[in-house]
Design a protein around this nucleic acid. Sequence first.
DNA 1: ACTGTTTGTCAACGGTGTTGACATTGCAGC
DNA 2: GCTGCAATGTCAACACCGTTGACAAACAGT
Lengths: 211, 211
Amino acid sequence: MSRLTPDRIVAAAIDVIADVGPEQFSVRRLGDALDADPTAIYRHFRSKDELLRAIGDRSLAGVVDDLPASSWRDCIREVCMRIRAANLARPALASLVRGAPPRHRNELLITETILSRLREAGFDVAGAAMAYHAVIELTIGSAAIDSPLACVAESERDRTYEEWRSDYAALDAGAFPVSVQMAASLYPQTADQRFEYALDRLLDGLSLTVM
Amino acid sequence: MSRLTPDRIVAAAIDVIADVGPEQFSVRRLGDALDADPTAIYRHFRSKDELLRAIGDRSLAGVVDDLPASSWRDCIREVCMRIRAANLARPALASLVRGAPPRHRNELLITETILSRLREAGFDVAGAAMAYHAVIELTIGSAAIDSPLACVAESERDRTYEEWRSDYAALDAGAFPVSVQMAASLYPQTADQRFEYALDRLLDGLSLTVM
DNA sequence: ACTGTTTGTCAACGGTGTTGACATTGCAGC
DNA sequence: GCTGCAATGTCAACACCGTTGACAAACAGT
């Protein structure tokens, strides 16, 4: 075996990203962390993009383990929440999804799980495909939006939300009456809970198509 | 007045992005297009990020003009489609959604429009806030995911989707039976239509909360 | 032990955003 | 008019970035 392996590189990369943030992550920094020449990484990954995908896939390990067998809704809901949690925990991943197809094992397992549950629930092939894409777009897209704020301390996050609310409250009440009136009610609860609500409403809507 | 103005820079930047794609957009290219030194741009924008935000702001102009007055669903649907269209046309925006967003006029107009329609439709304050966030997260998130493929030629896009489908079809049918079976049905229709479907199902689900 | 592939190292290429020093322009106030 | 000052454009340079090709060391198979 070689000194560097894909596994060790991915593990080190996750550490580096946790350290310096996804924005500052670079091949050179990763090389430093590995005490190896940065270009050695290209012996194991064709490009940085391929490396990032591998990192993303590793973070999705276990997403489809021990799922509730109760209903298709509960199952898919849980999968989506776990995907979100994985993406928010390592915020770099959310940004690198970029519509790339799931070529890796964990991503494929997720697809297989969601699709099969939908089919069991009575979705026809076309309906299952549409429902799958709908649920995934909401989950991944929402995580991409929320990830920047997910990695800062809770106090700072709260302060940011409060700042945004007061921005709305300070608007011209003539031009933006409803925004001003509702300012205090915007960004309610936590970002996780807002996602949960959106996912539940989407699943409600999808349920209607199969009954 | 100076030879370069923020307006002219933004206009040129939009042209350049349309030409070479968001990925290849750089300050140097923009300088070439303006027949000026690239660093002259920094006399009008503090950073590339600020420039991108200005581009984003302009691209959202007109999103809330002449909306259908019929139903709240039609109205919000139309707003979301226009936001998506704006984001996909100027894909650079998708990548900058992640930063802490300063409130710009067009963005505020969109918020006001959606919130007021929801309130008129009978949503209470809390429900309108949740529905607003749900709809926006799906719209912006989905656009962020779809934008990389939105700016390539249709033939190349079709080829990419076909490649992804055949990736699924080539999987081990024992481990991924449903994925293999449904391979040809994945990524159905266009990305716009898939988003439309997801949005409609989400609106269906939101409708249930207000009846 | 010889050979050929794999892996690590090094220098370098072409690109990026951004900064500071310098030259030029335009415009206020006298 | 002129002067002085701020705004604007130009240039060179910095510190990075992802990636490639040539070369050396280590390993595998025969």
